[in-house]
Amino acid sequence: MPVRRVVTGRSQEPRRRYAEELRRLRTTRGLSLRALADAVGWDPSLLMKLERGETLGSPEVAEALDLYYGMPGLLLAMWEMAVGDLTQFKEQYRRYMRLEAEAVNLWHFGVSTVHGLLQTDDYAREVLTLGGINGKELEQQVEARAGRRQLLEGSGAPPFRSILAEAALSARLPDMRVRREQLEYLLEVSERPNITLQVLPQTTWLHGLVSTDVMFLRMADGTTVAYTENAHRGELIEKKASVEQLQRAYDAMRDQALIPAESRKFILRMLEEVPCEPST
């Protein structure tokens, strides 16, 4: 019987475990990165970054390696675990993200940015960069947000309502292409049966969530928790009375939002105003 490898703290981390396994599979077969790249049809520099844990690549890469190594589905499953790995996030967000993944119903209000579940990769990169994240951590966070988007995909995806203040849609970005693609993506996902998208115009009355992003999560046991966030901190709120107070503020604000059909028209008008090419 082969000796069982020791499960270390390092190998328990999904992202590192994925990189470790890719490196082990290649080296035990005596392959160079160039030889492997030629065999699977991907660039050797990408494969090197995968083995170093600098990137997770795409599911297509994982599937190609699965096929080559004769391990159908295993590497893809490891890739999915690595993408959803919570250890790359700050401690204050981890409990919220676990609850987000388990929620049976979600509803949200965004003051100045689109929620991470609805962000394109490039939009996420812009937002995270403004928050002071860069380099390797930036790419890890972008990949993780891409993985979180899968929560809203497929036949079993939970219902999600997102109300976005006009300011979240009209904020200028250094690259107008990024803003255009984000608006187009919002229109695309708003057609999914489980996603309801509404816009809160700038002309509405003052409301109780005027400076606070909030996400509500209804769990399978019927309880609801809330996560509030501003420019400086986030807070998970589980006390029933506090959650209900936020829900009343949300309901009052929602009554002022445009209905979904009008919201789509609103976003289309905004999209028409975004230049197709960067200004010179």
Rank of each mutant, 00 (worst) to 15 (best):
R4W: 09
R4G: 12
R10C: 09
Q12R: 15
E13F: 00
E13V: 15
P14K: 03
P14V: 06
R15Y: 01
R15N: 05
E20C: 00
E21M: 10
T27W: 00
R29A: 09
S32F: 07
A35T: 13
L36Q: 03
A37E: 04
V40E: 10
G41L: 09
W42A: 11
P44Q: 10
L46R: 14
M48Y: 08
R52S: 13
V61Q: 05
A62L: 07
A62P: 03
A64R: 03
L65D: 07
Y69R: 14
G70T: 13
G73N: 10
L74E: 15
A77P: 00
W79G: 08
W79T: 02
M81N: 14
D85P: 03
D85R: 05
Q88K: 10
F89T: 03
Y93A: 10
Y96F: 05
M97F: 10
R98W: 02
L99Y: 05
L99K: 01
E100S: 04
E102T: 01
V104S: 06
V104K: 14
W107Q: 04
V111D: 07
S112F: 05
V114N: 03
H115L: 02
L117M: 09
Q119F: 04
D122P: 00
Y123E: 09
A124T: 09
V127I: 15
V127C: 02
L130P: 00
G131P: 01
G132R: 01
G132C: 09
I133T: 14
L138Q: 06
Q140R: 15
Q141N: 04
A144S: 15
R145E: 02
A146Y: 02
G147D: 00
Q150D: 14
L151D: 06
E153Y: 12
E153F: 13
A157H: 01
A157T: 12
P158M: 14
P158G: 13
P158T: 15
P159K: 01
R161G: 02
L164W: 05
A165Q: 08
E166V: 10
A167V: 15
A167G: 14
A168M: 14
A168P: 11
L169R: 03
R172M: 13
L173M: 13
P174Y: 06
D175I: 05
D175N: 15
M176L: 13
L187K: 07
E188M: 07
S190I: 07
V199M: 07
Q202K: 05
T203C: 02
W205H: 11
H207M: 11
G208A: 09
L209A: 08
L209I: 02
S211E: 11
M215L: 09
M215G: 04
A220S: 14
G222T: 13
T223L: 12
T223K: 15
T224P: 03
E229C: 03
N230P: 02
A231Y: 07
A231W: 07
R233I: 06
G234M: 10
E238T: 10
E238S: 08
K239L: 04
K239N: 05
K240V: 09
V243D: 01
Q245G: 10
L246I: 09
Q247A: 04
A252F: 06
M253L: 09
R254C: 06
D255K: 15
Q256S: 12
Q256Y: 06
L258Q: 04
I259F: 01
I259A: 08
P260T: 14
P260A: 13
P260V: 14
A261T: 02
E262K: 01
F266S: 03
F266H: 12
L268C: 06
L268P: 00
L271H: 05
V274W: 04
S279F: 01
